[in-house]
Amino acid sequence: MDDLDWGVVRRSWPILREATWTSIQLFFLSLVLATIVGLAVALMRMSSVRGVRWFAAIYIWIFRGLPALVILFFAFFWLGRELDLTPFQAAVLGLAASSGAYKAEIIRAGLLAVDRGQYEAAEALGFTKAHAMRKIILPQGVRVMVPNYMSNATLLFKSTSLAAVIGLTELTGRSRQLANSTFKPIEFLTAAGGIYLVLTSVLIVGQGFLERRFALKK
């Protein structure tokens, strides 16, 4: 083994920084979309219409049963070609579809944790179902959801690396490329690993903050 050459990483820093930014954008866009999908599927799963409930259950079964990579391939090779999407857009859709199924279960668990009596009280007060959900059930359910939601978000952040397989030069893809072209795999893969560790640690700290923020005031 030759001596490690960290200078090459320093010189490539602007490229790595840009790739990190791509990863962060991928993460935020797919997180927002996954949350919308998850909320919709969770509510459908609890619907009083049987067909809607089944649809949601099948969605969750399929998207949790498949590797995220396979879902990403569907988004890229099939949806991407049909709708003429960029690899970035396909990656966002694929990650959101996959993560949304997990989010749905987390959101549903949070909603189910809210005491049954709260639904009944809202009904007695003449709230419509949508109004009760938005004003009474969701705010209380959120507290239960936060820990699982955040650890799932951390998983999603790591899953953005899968976009490298469909050719996106986010952090993993770019560092692999740089490792290849400079013959410095240790330096670049370690650098990428360090950046991931910093960002996932930030998310874990953020989780602790949110949990305190949403904790019941004593």
Partner: peptide, 19 residues
Amino acid sequence: RGIPLLLILFYVFFALPEF
């Protein structure tokens, strides 16, 4: 748990042989 599995696989396959 802080690093994506994909990067771990790259590390084992591409970086470890350097040692």
